[in-house]
Simulated scan of single mutants.
Amino acid sequence: MSVRHLATIVVGFLVAGAGGGLLWERLSDPTAGLTYQDQWYVEPAGPDVAFQSVAMFVLVAFPIGLVLAVLAGLWRDGETATVVTVLVAATAAGLVMYAVGSSLGPPDPQALAAGSPDYTPLPGHLGLTAPDRGRTPWMSTALVAFPAGAMTGLVGMYLFGAEGLARRSRG
């Protein structure tokens, strides 16, 4: 296994993470909300409304990780190095995906609500948690979607790929 091959895997995952962030931002509809007494509230209220951007993140990240890991698994030398590299690169790609998507999305509505007149409509920030006050928008298990997809693809490739589970002749 060459360092060049491993670096190609890392760069591929990071570029795909940036592209996934762009796609996540384009496909997600910002949560609608209103200001009231210098606070921003989701309108209509409910967890299903706030969950949309999290679900879209998972729906974009998991398949991208899966496909890239299948491609990385095509090389059959240095499986251990490939597994470690794919896991680290997929984790970093998930973080890049979040950073790109959230930076392209609308700004934090809680900050904009301070000083805004009551009942001003503001779009919600693109985050991975409910848009409640005091919540950190990136602290979510949704960040595991990219590495989970990658590990699924890599394990599937190693088990069921062209050389995986090959039957030996019995006679």
Rank of each mutant, 00 (worst) to 15 (best):
R26N: 07
W75V: 15
H125T: 04
A61K: 11
M151Y: 11
S53E: 09
A92D: 02
L143D: 01
D108R: 03
G127R: 03
V49G: 00
G105E: 01
P30H: 07
V10P: 00
E43D: 15
L159Y: 11
P47Y: 15
S169N: 13
P131A: 13
G73N: 07
Y158S: 13
P44A: 07
L68T: 03
R76L: 07
T85I: 09
V84C: 04
A16H: 07
V88R: 01
F57M: 06
V11M: 12
T31Q: 06
Q52G: 03
I9V: 15
A142G: 08
A69D: 10
L122V: 01
F57H: 07
A32P: 05
W40D: 07
G46T: 09
L71I: 12
P63E: 09
V11S: 02
G101K: 10
L71N: 06
A92Y: 10
W75R: 14
Q52V: 03
P109S: 05
I9C: 00
G115E: 04
V42K: 02
S2C: 01
Q110V: 04
G17I: 01
A16D: 02
E43A: 05
L23A: 15
S169W: 15
G46L: 05
W75P: 04
T136P: 03
G156I: 12
S169Q: 15
P106I: 04
L27F: 11
G73K: 05
L71R: 10
P131L: 14
L22H: 10
T85C: 10
H125D: 02
M157G: 11
P121R: 06
V10C: 07
P63D: 06
A113S: 09
G33H: 00
L112D: 13
A162D: 12
D77W: 04
T8I: 11
G153Y: 13
A45Y: 07
S116C: 03
V155F: 11
A113T: 02
G21S: 11
E163F: 08
T141V: 15
P123R: 01
V3D: 14
G153P: 06
R135M: 08
P131F: 01
A92V: 10
A142V: 08
Q110A: 11
T129R: 13
V100H: 09
G65M: 09
L59P: 04
E163H: 12
L128N: 02
Q110E: 09
T152L: 15
A18R: 07
A130N: 08
L128W: 08
A90G: 07
M139L: 14
A111C: 01
D118I: 02
S116G: 03
P117I: 02
P63G: 03
G65P: 06
L59R: 13
G115V: 11
V86H: 01
L71V: 13
V84E: 05
S53P: 02
A18L: 05
W138R: 00
Q110W: 05
P121K: 02
M151V: 12
V3R: 13
Q52R: 13
A142C: 12
V10M: 11
A50D: 10
A114H: 11
T8K: 09
L128T: 02
M56Q: 15
A32D: 14
L6Y: 12
L122T: 01
Y36L: 04
L66N: 01
S53K: 09
V144Q: 12
V70D: 07
